[in-house]
Amino acid sequence: MANLGRILLVEDDPKDVELTLTALDEYNLANEVVVTHNGEEALDYLHCRGPFATRSNENPAVLLLDLKLPKVDGLEVLQQIRAAEKLELIPVVVLTSSHEEKDMVASYKLGVNAYVVKPVDFHEFVNAVKELGVFWGVINEPPPGSLGKTSRL
């Protein structure tokens, strides 16, 4: 089922989505990814409402969150996740273009688990995304109530 994924990617830019998926694909992690294109859609997914009302209600093992998003932006999504009892334990990694200290401080204050600036260099980018996917999607033990590891790895 396409709605089942251990990695929830929240990214509005289709090119970034493609690059990220390409990177994850190098470790065969692309199939584990659910993509949402703005904050509202991401929250719908997490709360199993609207188009995602029928999905099984496990949480993803990790959320890769862009900050600059249409409608509900990344920091707001993060805030709502941390405020919701069912979602508050989900590991969240901010994956952003910006080096802005302001964003970084705000993210950490809201309890982000990691903050990664997307490198311009493609190799570095691939490496960063790959490592993130492997660490959070495979190595890290997610909190109870998350989708467990599949047998494919």
Binding site: L67, S97, H99, K118, F122, H123
Partner: peptide
Amino acid sequence: VSHDLRAPLRHMAGFTEL
């Protein structure tokens, strides 16, 4: 600049690499 200028640059580099 830090958000919007780096994104297309990353795409150029990324897709050229691909």
